[in-house]
Write a protein that binds this DNA or RNA. Structure first.
Lengths: 221, 221
DNA sequence: AAATATTTTTAGATTTGTCTAAATATTTAA
DNA sequence: TTAAATATTTAGACAAATCTAAAAATATTT
């Protein structure tokens, strides 16, 4: 079965919002997809007719087994392309996502399996997110936001979520990028700002909002 | 400027049909794009408003300088992707075209320039067609249909145009593929069928229709 | 140069995906 | 437990890209 770019994007969004299980609301989806609630309802009816999601008016929606399969195949494509863009074409981690948003909708199954082989079956994309295999199986990610990192535990930055130019700007100023070693020394109670040791040298204070966008994993991984 | 997939496909089709110069007719375009004349007229008006093509009702159309630029950039993307698919992913010459039809509409300029560098700036795609560079410049192709090859002149098969399964089937039977050495020994006057020496060994007779789909170039190229 | 045939354009309908504004259902608060 | 606030759905409109059928222009024939 082939789906439109729009349908694929809706299914992917539901997948991300529903997390492990649970229902997704109309407003949450509208916010995520930057559209209006009315548009969401329309598309939900359509996807529900196609048995890709469970939908009872006013009760929210969740993916069916089929819907989850489609979502995972789109995510597989997205992450494989991100890996390709970063690893083979040397495109920066702050740019790969946007390009992969387009590439993920190219439909050839053969293309994606050949690409997977060419890249030697990578398990994680450049943001540290696991890449589903042909069957939709993937490893567990161990990335956590910097705000959840234990005090005085060195960790490595593995991704920046949603890296808009103004975020990239401040990270550049503080010399934090993917691969940088960081360690939270202290969290201030007043505004929840964090004192962070960067690259085992200087210490900087960063806001909670910023720390929430920085994802890290244990050093020994 | 960004254009829709549809707009890009129309511009590309006009480019191919207009050849060096000259006007393209509504019916010719409709046939090529497998759509109806009414749809062509609609889109022509739209593209003409955007100054991408010259259009006077009932007189046919041709690309403007801007329109040609867009067409060439799409062709550049198409051929670079074909090269990537064949060379890096080992996808067969009979399958790369269809996949590239989708990839050519991915819009990132950076992606395509990085891909070009990664592939080491190839001048020809797997079908022997020249790949335009950033500026739209390309080499001249020296591929000719087998029907135009001089008698008793060895040449190499460099592409099969429009390789549908039934064409691939017969070529397989006759052991002709991309790279095969061929030499036309004789052309029968009655039905224009060709006696062809294949891979410097056996001789087979092939129809004019088939020979028209087989493109070759001089051996020393 | 009429008559006929062909090509092209126009008019109006359809599908997909979106929106605004109004109506309805659900949740929260008084 | 009503009233107010919020969330969701419906109704109707719109833009893009397509089509069919009819009208208009051009080309061909006799």
């Amino acid at each position: 079965m082939k789906f439109s770019t729009t349908e694929e994007n809706y299914l992917k969004a539901v997948y991300y919002l529903q997390g492990q299980h649970g229902n997704v609301s109309t407003n949450a989806l509208a916010a995520r997809l930057q559209s209006k609630p009315a548009s969401i309802t329309d598309m939900m009816k359509k996807l529900s007719n196609k048995k890709l999601l469970n939908y009872k008016p006013y009760y929210g929606f969740s993916l069916t087994t089929d819907g989850k399969k489609v979502a995972l195949s789109v995510i597989r494509k997205h992450r494989l392309w991100e890996f390709f863009l970063a690893e083979k074409l040397n495109i920066g981690w702050d740019e790969v996502h946007g390009i992969a948003e387009e590439l993920e909708h190219v439909s050839s199954k053969k293309l994606i399996d050949k690409l997977d082989a060419f890249l030697d079956y990578p398990a994680f994309d450049p943001h540290g997110d696991p890449i589903p295999d042909k069957l939709g199986k993937m490893q567990k990610s161990n990335k956590i936001p910097l705000t959840n990192l234990k005090l005085s535990t060195p960790a490595k930055v593995i991704s920046i979520s949603n890296p808009k130019p103004n975020v990239v700007e401040i990270l550049k100023e503080k010399k934090i990028t993917v691969g940088t070693l960081v360690e939270v020394k202290r969290v201030f109670d007043f505004d929840h700002s964090l004192q962070v040791k960067i690259a085992a040298s200087k210490t900087e204070t960063i806001s909670k909002q910023l720390a929430n966008m920085i994802f890290v994993s244990d050093v020994d991984v």
